Simulated assay, not measured.
Amino acid sequence: MVAGIYVGLEGPSMASARMAILNCVADKVEFSAKYGIEIHEEEWPVKNLPKVFLADNGEMKGVTAENIIQQFGIEIQTAGSYRADGKGIVERHFRTMHDYMKPEMPGFVLPDFRQRGGHDYRLDGKLNLKEFTALIIESTIEHNKKLITNYTFDIKLAESGVLETPVELWKWGIKNRSGNFKAVPEDQLKAALLKHKKVSASRRGLRLFKDLYYTLPLAMAEGWFISSQGKKYIRLDIAYDPRDLSEVYVKYKGKYHSAVPTPSSDKFKYFLEDCVFYDKLKQRQAKGYKSVEFDNMVKAQESLKRVISEASKEADVQIIDPKSPKRAKNIRDNREIEKTVQRQKEKSPLKESEPAEVISIDRQETTNSKKAVAERLRKLRNKKFNRDD
């Protein structure tokens, strides 16, 4: 019985194994409908995980496999290196699928592909990934209904009169043998199959990588991003898919919660490859820019010294007694005068605008007030420049 499939461009890796495992617990009716194929649930009734996984030596090793073992109690077994006979049933099914599709499949690569003068079968390809997946689904349904001629004899099975096809044997085994299957929530399985990393909360959010922080409603409600005296920032486990970092899953009190990047995070770093490339690019740019940055700093220092030198020479000419305490008097009044002069210089009225007529309630009072202000300014200026008039 084919419990799950995955068709994609990923090579043999945990990423492709993850997609196949997720398909084991997926609703096959909905899955097939995505590719334009209508089936009934009894044609492909698998929605569970097994008790034991048998995989290649490299794909199911590491932290991800340990998460499956710890959370769901599933045993992981690996075949020996370069020993295809360790999982002969699977390898034989691949060959059966090739034989099934070869006669009609445009672009199917034959053994003479690399021979001199041989035909380049790749140029005959017509199907896209979605169409090819639909063919695999059709092949899987056909396989699950195919009669097994050399199935191991079982007296109870023989007495039941069950047709020995993979799908009927599956149904009979679930009913009479209970089977060693596990019902697992799909979202929890998704998180368990992802990569995991311990991260700490901060004022900016949960930091997964440099310049990439995450937030979620639960964090705001629990106050994870607030630090107070005697209180340390919380440290949590994050599950993420390196191929797409636009969403991660935070494990808190045994459950996974979806988190998204904060508004200040670098949106161009939603993929792990981009993160690595972007960080290396910034390092190279910073290294190459050091000489330019040093030259700019030297030029700025020289300009600063020149301005100060010129200003000091001019001040020495104008100021007779630099240390005289009289220079500190009337600082506030002098500031107001300079502010008025500066405002006049910075004034920039619109060229095409016409001055609006201002009507005062008491024209005489307004006129007198203006004259008083002007007279005070005139006196302050005269006092500053030691003039009598």
Rank of each mutant, 00 (worst) to 15 (best):
M1S: 12
M1E: 01
S13A: 10
A15M: 05
D27Y: 04
S32V: 02
G36S: 11
I37S: 01
I39H: 04
E43F: 02
F53C: 12
N57P: 00
M60Q: 14
V63D: 13
A65Q: 12
F72D: 04
A79D: 02
G86C: 06
I89M: 03
T96V: 01
H98I: 02
M105C: 03
F113I: 06
F113R: 12
H119E: 12
D120S: 07
Y121E: 10
K126T: 08
N128S: 09
I137L: 11
T140E: 01
H143T: 09
N144S: 08
T149S: 14
A158S: 09
A158D: 13
E164A: 04
G173R: 14
G173N: 13
K175T: 15
N176Q: 06
G179K: 07
G179R: 06
V199D: 12
A201Q: 10
R203W: 07
R204T: 07
L208S: 15
D211A: 13
I226S: 03
Q229H: 13
K232C: 05
K232P: 02
Y233L: 04
R235G: 07
A239C: 10
P242M: 04
L245A: 07
S246G: 11
V248R: 08
K251V: 07
S264A: 09
E273R: 11
Y278W: 04
L281S: 06
A286K: 10
S291P: 00
N296M: 15
V298Y: 01
E302I: 14
S303R: 12
P322D: 05
A328Q: 02
A328W: 03
R335G: 00
R335T: 05
T340C: 08
Q342N: 11
P349Q: 04
P349A: 05
L350R: 05
A356N: 00
V358P: 01
E365Q: 14
N368P: 00
K371G: 01
A372Y: 08
V373P: 02
A374F: 10
L377Q: 11
K384Q: 14
F385Y: 15
D389C: 03
